[in-house]
Design a protein around this nucleic acid. Structure first.
Length: 761
RNA sequence: GGGCGAUUAGCUCAGUUGGUAGAGCAAUCCAUUUACACUGGAAAGGUCACAGGUUCGAGUCCUGUAUCGCCCACCA
């Protein structure tokens, strides 16, 4: 081939993703086709199809898991757009409250040696905002590089003005329904982060611990076991199983003793929560420092006695205990037990220790006055579209969550389908164990709780809340002396509103009417509880709808050896690196092929490289076909160029066979697209293009294209053009850049593949 | 303690309602400028974790076992 070539010059060189991708993305953006309101008429009139992007945290940069998420969602969106749906893919980012705050706190401490309290709330929040803005810009750039056909004009942030109004409205509405309440109970306290956290933000770590078996006093006949002797200063009861014959005679008895310098009053109670087989079968009840004991205390009306403060220091006990950290106090209590001759046994055991997900600190259960969402409380659902829950019916948030999701066995009428199905059971199991959700956090970054107090806020949990005048509303109350609650909301409170807060709620917008419920929620299986369940709860309660019809869960992207990618292992593959080296198309394909929904996938650089070669293969196939159509193939450059004729019918028997094979493939993959089996579609198209079209059909065509039979040549060229045209359409959702680039060259810019039709037979 | 998933070629994984085991990568041999070396062709490679069962027939269905991984609970 030479400079006289009749085909576009760029096909004379290998495909270069680097010089193509940003140009194509810009072209798409300018076309307006990412925005459903600016789509061509065919899509304008189509059924709505919507996905809201699970907002990445503004804590830094995107990783391969995000890249996989973007690839899968873009495939769904592009496929539906080509099919003629009015598609909306809505982008956004998440302020990620505690995650972002602790990240910035660490940075400031490292660089300036200052803590957040040294800077003050206002200055600290300014710093966080700056950091969040930078992260946001990085993330947006990465999303673009992946080729995401997402509607930037509707971009949202969980902490922006509109979302803030949504949060305040949600809080007020749920408060008025009686679902949000303020109460004092044992919560998970993160002493390092100095905040409460929810049950889901706890990570259990297996550690070695000592189990101590002892008596409180010689005056109490029952022996108990614990790994935390220091908390026993706060005990108010001994619990045994009601059927335990060993302790029948003691049930109901009360004792007053002095334990390590602290006067304690112990009542013996019977509760079925006690496991008679474990230890001595008797358990010391510490209502203030154990959630389970707190529950037990509620059942038996036991008093609460706090002996540990927010800084994990003892507030009771003798002089070697009081004021000490719990670790030291534990040793001191054990010493005291020994000196009194009360310690009977000391054994090594493995224990699961609750730690805070973000800070790694050991959780200290403490009684505190916090805001909660009641999941089991009955209320009247004002409006509902959810199957099995008519408007005005009496229900609970738990029931909303149970009714919304489909389950073959227990709830066949549920409208939300989870893919893969096996996660349905995981979901239901979690809901059945669900307790009230603690939503207040003692951190600064986030949505401030929309509650104002007239008098001084109650600090001590023992004081009664009625002392302060309380106002709950979307705006600050008028008049003097009101002070807003200093706490912020759990980040998942605002994330829970995501499908509708992004569409304009609480306003009754056209977007909300058109695109809600959203079609698909595509996210990682690791946040099914954090997010998926909370969205169903919030949406059901506030909008009376399900937030989405289908939940598609993807797995974790691991390294080539199946290990979790992490900084400490140094095995992180950066999506931007891969895009730069091999292109976004190759990166996308490598994240799709070889992994089904809900399964973890393995990614190696070789895999990405392989799919880069595939992009070039398509490029070369195009070169071959275009030069054949131009007459170059058979050395007759003066022959009239053959233009693609979609109506062409004069096939030979070979071409009819090829056509049938291609049509069958299209039927198959269209079915698989509907079943969300993208990995199969990607693989089948790869297989067809390389092994069939290139290696067999093209090779077999060479003698015909070089032969004398003009009719045969025309038929063959028509088939090749048809096959290429079809394959480009089918591959577009997977490899949008290279397919669009070829399409532009073939159609001289007269149409855009992004809005062309998905192939039909 | 409860639940879920995986186990198929050296590696990564497909295998649709049961009907002669499939692909990519790697390795082997051949081809050397071919639309494409980001290449083509050929051959090789498997007791489908194990043990039973159902069946004319099981990678696929049933029961059990083992190993690995994950999730939930948190027994003090």
């Amino acid at each position: 081939m030479n400079e006289k070539s009749l085909i576009p010059e760029k096909f004379l060189k290998p495909y270069n993703p680097g010089s193509t991708e940003s140009r194509i993305y810009e072209m798409w953006e300018k076309s307006g086709y990412f925005n459903p309101d600016k789509l061509p008429l065919r899509q304008q009139k189509g059924e709505p199809f919507s996905i809201v992007l699970p907002p990445p945290n503004v804590t830094g940069t995107l990783h391969m898991g995000h890249a996989a998420m973007l690839a899968i969602e873009d495939i769904m969106i592009r496929y539906k757009r080509m099919q003629g749906f009015k598609t909306l893919w809505l982008p956004g980012t998440d302020h990620a409250a505690i995650a972002t705050q602790s990240k910035v706190e660490k940075e400031i401490e490292k660089k300036e040696g200052k803590r957040r309290h040294d800077l003050g709330r206002e200055e600290f929040l300014k710093r966080v905002d700056t950091f969040a803005q930078e992260s946001h810009d990085t993330i947006v750039n990465q999303v673009r590089k992946m080729g995401a056909s997402i509607d930037w004009s509707r971009e949202a942030f969980t902490l922006d003005e509109k979302r803030s109004l949504a949060v305040r409205t949600a809080f007020k509405t749920m408060h008025d329904l009686g679902l949000i309440y303020r109460g004092s109970k044992v919560i998970n306290w993160d002493p390092k982060g100095q905040t409460t956290i929810s049950d889901d933000e706890i990570v259990y770590e297996t550690r070695k611990a000592k189990l101590y078996t002892f008596k409180y006093s010689k005056d109490i006949p029952i022996t108990i076991s614990t790994t935390r002797p220091e908390t026993k200063l706060g005990d108010t009861a001994i619990a045994v199983h009601p059927d335990d014959v060993r302790y029948q005679q003691y049930i109901g008895k009360e004792y007053d003793v002095v334990f390590a310098g602290e006067s304690i009053h112990i009542r013996v109670i019977a509760d079925t929560a006690v496991e008679p087989e474990f230890g001595t079968g008797a358990l010391g009840v510490t209502p203030a420092h154990s959630a389970i004991d707190w529950d037990m205390a509620q059942r038996h009306d036991l008093p609460l006695k706090q002996v540990i403060d927010e800084f994990t220091k003892m507030t009771a006990g003798n002089e070697s205990i009081k004021g000490k950290k719990v670790g030291e106090a534990r040793t001191a209590v054990v010493e005291w037990l020994k000196s009194e001759g009360l310690l009977e046994k000391e054994e090594d055991i493995e224990q699961n220790v609750a730690t805070a997900e973000r800070t790694g600190a050991v959780i200290e259960p403490l009684p505190k006055l916090q805001w909660f969402i009641a999941v089991n409380k009955k209320f009247t659902l004002p409006y509902s579209n959810i199957r099995g829950l008519p408007s005005g019916s009496e229900t609970t948030l738990k029931e909303i969550m149970l009714k919304a999701v489909k389950s073959e066995e227990t709830n066949p009428d549920g409208s939300i389908e989870i893919i893969p199905e096996r996660f349905e059971r995981v979901y239901f199991n979690w809901i059945n164990n669900l307790r009230d959700w603690c939503i207040s956090r003692q951190i600064w970054y986030g949505h401030r709780i929309p509650v104002w107090y007239k008098k001084e806020k109650t600090v001590n949990s023992k004081q009664k809340t009625e002392e302060a005048e309380i106002y709950v509303g979307t705006e600050a109350p008028t008049g003097e002396g009101w002070e807003q609650d200093s706490d912020t909301l759990d980040t998942w409170f605002s994330s829970g509103l995501w499908t509708f807060s992004t569409l304009g709620w609480p306003e009754k917008t056209i977007d909300l009417k058109t695109f809600h419920p959203t079609s698909v929620l595509e996210t990682g299986y690791d946040i099914i509880f954090f997010w998926v369940a909370r969205m169903i709860l919030m949406t059901g309660c506030l909008v009376g709808e399900v937030p989405f019809k289908t939940v598609y869960l993807h797995g974790l992207v691991r390294d080539g050896k199946g290990k979790k990618m992490s900084k400490s292992l140094g095995n992180i593959i950066d999506p931007l690196d891969m895009i730069e080296k091999y292109g976004a198309d190759a990166t996308r394909l490598s994240l799709i092929i070889g992994t089904g929904p809900g399964n973890d996938s393995k990614l190696s650089e070789d895999k990405v490289k392989g799919y880069k070669n595939f992009g070039n293969k398509i490029w070369n196939i195009t070169r071959f076909i275009l030069s054949s159509a131009a007459g170059e193939r058979y050395g007759l450059t003066s022959v009239e160029k053959i233009a693609y004729d979609p109506q062409f019918k004069d096939w030979t028997s070979a071409e009819s066979t090829y056509l049938k094979q291609l049509n069958d493939l299209i039927t198959e993959i269209t079915k698989e697209m509907e079943e969300y089996k993208f990995y199969l579609v990607g693989e089948k198209l790869y297989q067809y293009v390389w092994a069939e079209l290139a290696d067999k059909i093209l090779e077999e065509s060479k003698p015909i294209l070089n032969g004398d039979d003009a009719e045969a040549r025309t038929a063959r060229v028509q088939f090749l053009l048809h096959a290429l045209n079809t394959v480009l359409r089918a591959l577009h959702p997977f490899m949008p850049y290279v397919t669009e680039e070829i399409w532009q060259e073939m159609n001289t810019g007269k149409s855009m593949l992004i809005v062309e039709e998905w192939p039909k037979n």
